[in-house]
Structure formats: structure tokens, C-alpha cells
Nucleic acid binder design. Structure first.
Length: 274
DNA sequence: AGAGATACCTGGGAGC
DNA sequence: TGCTCCCAGGTATCTC
């Protein structure tokens, strides 16, 4: 499941391949993913040159000349691949972009929680209006302990849900929220407003650290994550507690527990996380 | 306004 | 073995 580090990794690979090339045509194999794919039938799309590939939160922005862009969210199972045009189609390939030189950029997504649409940009280099509500990037200085405390004031929601709210900070999903809270020694159940200053410092640092290490490793590798050529990455970043309910805590050896928060499983150590 | 629930979707694993 | 059930996940949208 691609989280921010995976999206960053895919975006970098995509930029290396796509920038300067022309999207000659689009083949749609279905009408919709999370949203209808109508916008990809826009006659303004064919013939546009890719000028940049950027990331915002978990969204990829494939910028085209003329202040247009392909806005892409990989959802849970979205995969982008560059393959020869005559390579056989995989079962869940929904969109094929003809990028010339006998190659296609293919969007594959098993669970179809993903989004691909053509959007207008307010100006070249600008952000699609649809992303206007996203909070700061977690790896920038704007996401600080002071910012966290300011936004958390009065919020009784569990700190884990708060961390995963992309209006607060964008791109922190269940895996990294779980890992960061463990690294910071903070219970996922604590009301956001009750996180004290030194704890917020630890938590914000933990979020940045786990994301940065994962990006450096080329993204945490999961069964659903593939590189652009379709190969799996290496198992680079070991997760401390995610998915380890019932197993011993790597710090104290006690049994890791799980609670459901916001409909999502949250693994934590009741002894190490308070 | 904040908080919680729900829909979207499919494959894989558990349990019978 | 084959069936059913449940779970994984981000985001938008709904209700209370």
C-alpha cells in the first residue's frame, strides 16, 4: 500500500522517465476508479508534453504544458509501470498512456481505490484546486511541534486519528502513524489536545524520521508495491510494531495490543506507549 | 464545529 | 475441497 515514501519514490522514477515526453494518447479500460475517468477523454490531453512530476501528500501531479496536469492518487493498490506497448495487459490495468517510442505508461489498481484525472492548474507550477485543503508536508519545517500543538488545541479526537487527518498534516497513513507513535512512546488513544510540548516534539520528530528513513530506503516494501518496471523493491525498512499484534514489543517484550481507531487497526504497546 | 460512521473495492486468509 | 466471512486501506461525504 503506497504511503508517502512510496509515492515519493514512484514520483522520482516517473519524473526520470516522463519529463520531456509527449502523451500521445490514452486508452481507458473502464469508466471509473474512485471517480469517473471522463476527464481523461478531454481532447486537450493528447499531444501534451510532460514538464514536471511533483508530489503533494500522497498525490502525484504529472504537470503538462499549458497549465494542465494529471492528478494521480494510488489509493491502496495503484501501480504505475512503464512497459513496451506490445507487452500483454495485466488483469487490473485500467489506463494506458501512449508515451511514444513504443512504450506505454500503465496504471494498474486491483482495488480501484485510486484516482486519476486531468485537472487545470491555476498557473504553471501551481497546485490543483482539489488539493487546497491539504495540510503541510510532514517533512517540511511547517510541520513542527508548535504547529501540532496549535492545531490540537481543544481536539479530543485520538492523537492517531489526528495524525492521519490530511488537513492537519498530509501523507501520514496508518503504517507510519503507528510506527511514529511507538517511537515517540505515546499511546494512539490519547486525545490530541493532551499531548504535551515535549511529547509533541518527540512525535513530530518521529514522524519525520520514519518517513525520511523510508524514503531513503526507496519506500517500505509491501506485497502491493512495485517499482516502475514491475519488480518488487527490497525489504529495506523494518517496521517495529505495525502488523505485529500479539507479538512481543521490541522494547519491553510485553505483548503488543491492537485497538480500532477511526475504523483502522492500531497496534501499540500498552507499557511503552502512555 | 468536531467527531464518528459509511461507501468505495477486491484478494487473501481464517474458519468451518 | 470449497464455501462464507472478514479484513486491509485513504478519502470524501454524510449524520449527529
Amino acid at each position: 500500500m503506497p504511503e508517502l515514501p512510496e509515492v515519493e519514490t514512484v514520483g522520482r522514477a516517473l519524473a526520470a522517465v516522463l519529463v520531456g515526453r509527449v502523451i500521445a494518447g490514452v486508452t481507458l479500460c473502464r469508466d471509473r476508479l474512485r471517480e469517473p475517468l471522463d476527464s481523461l477523454r478531454d481532447p486537450r490531453l493528447p499531444g501534451r508534453r510532460v514538464t514536471a512530476v511533483r508530489r503533494r501528500g500522497r498525490y502525484l501531479i504529472v504537470e503538462l504544458e499549458g497549465a494542465l496536469a494529471l492528478l494521480i492518487h494510488l489509493g491502496m493498490t495503484g501501480v504505475l509501470k512503464v512497459l513496451p506497448a506490445d507487452a500483454p495487459r495485466a488483469p487490473h490495468e485500467h489506463i494506458l498512456f501512449d508515451i511514444g517510442c513504443g512504450e506505454t505508461l500503465r496504471f494498474e489498481c486491483t482495488r480501484r481505490f485510486s484516482l486519476v484525472k486531468l485537472v487545470e492548474l491555476p498557473a504553471p507550477g501551481g497546485m490543483p484546486e482539489a488539493l487546497g485543503l491539504l495540510g503541510p508536508e510532514p517533512l517540511t519545517a511547517a510541520f513542527s511541534a508548535d504547529y501540532f500543538r496549535e492545531r490540537a488545541r481543544g481536539r479530543r479526537t485520538a492523537v492517531k486519528n489526528f495524525l492521519m487527518d490530511n488537513r492537519i498534516v498530509t501523507g501520514v497513513g496508518n503504517i507510519y502513524a503507528t510506527e511514529a507513535l511507538f517511537a515517540a512512546g505515546i499511546s494512539p488513544l490519547r486525545p490530541a489536545a493532551d499531548v504535551r510540548k515535549p511529547e509533541a516534539v518527540r512525535l513530530v520528530e518521529a514522524v519525520k524520521s520514519v518517513l525520511a528513513r523510508s524514503i531513503a530506503a526507496g519506500g517500505t516494501t509491501f506485497s502491493d508495491f512495485r517499482r516502475l518496471d514491475g519488480s518488487t523493491g527490497h525489504y529495506a525498512l523494518e517496521l517495529a510494531i505495525y502488523g505485529r499484534k500479539g507479538q512481543p514489543c521490541p522494547h519491553c517484550g510485553g505483548m503488543l495490543r491492537a485497538v480500532t481507531l477511526g475504523g483502522r487497526t492500531s497496534v501499540y504497546c500498552p507499557h511503552c506507549q502512555r
